[in-house]
Design a protein around this nucleic acid. Sequence first.
DNA 1: CTAAATTAGTTTGTATACAAATTATATTTA
DNA 2: TAAATATAATTTGTATACAAACTAATTTAG
Lengths: 147, 147
Amino acid sequence: MEMNHTLLKDHIGFTASTTSKMIRGLVNTTLKPFGITAEQWTVLKHLSFVSHINQKDLSKRTDKDQATLTKILDLLEQHRLAARLPNPDDRRSYFVEITEQGKKLVEEAMPLIESLYDDILLNLSSEQVETFMNTLQQIQSNIKKLK
Amino acid sequence: MEMNHTLLKDHIGFTASTTSKMIRGLVNTTLKPFGITAEQWTVLKHLSFVSHINQKDLSKRTDKDQATLTKILDLLEQHRLAARLPNPDDRRSYFVEITEQGKKLVEEAMPLIESLYDDILLNLSSEQVETFMNTLQQIQSNIKKLK
DNA sequence: CTAAATTAGTTTGTATACAAATTATATTTA
DNA sequence: TAAATATAATTTGTATACAAACTAATTTAG
């Protein structure tokens, strides 16, 4: 595809965004039978790795705004997949925990998500995947320096 | 960073998503003085390339859902940056056009966006950028085959 | 030529992103 | 220790993503 230099650069932002959307769409489709979204999965999966965590830290680890995380946790709690428990040492915050039901969901969905990523990365060599990750991280590093 | 194979693959989706968000955030900051968002910019820029276009085609080219595009165009129209004109040949659709004010905004903002992408891609060789784009497109191609 | 099917765009409803204001609680400082 | 400051979480308001229902107009089939 012919394209001048500037437009090509700009196009990278666009393609990164469309690709990201496509991956999210696929994850959403895979998780639909479980009744949760890709974003809720991100949060629930992180909860499955820790005994408990407060929302501030969870929001950093999952790259969710605190306000957004509040809504996501509301939904996870409604579906009995996670719970906010009182933190006895600081009444402003909660111990957020995954429930047994949440653990069961993660166990069942995890293989599907793993196989989905196998499919997404089909035909990509591990070297190409590594280079790709490095580029993403360099872009992130460049952006951080701009602030 | 140590990480098992599966988690690394999964991490690619996460990193692609965070990077995409960071780029969008930077574009939003750059466009804030102009009173438009990154998504509105995507649409307005495409309008600056054509004399007119219907919403169906515009939604495909900008990777916006038709419902989403409706709202974005409402905002662009409110700000007098774009206009919906009647299509004499098909009364279901519109000729969507950029206004003079819209063209002026694109002219003024374009150099800032260009320089922003220069900054984002700093220290990346053109070969690395090309490889990156190829990987994104291969991922997209893999996902399309899954449907 | 009319009924059925299709298409362009909008609307509605739910979820997420994010900035800004708010509340309740903790911590710091004067 | 009381007042000022900081922090965790929520709320509010606006924008976007997307599925599903809907409207109006066009096209196709019979």
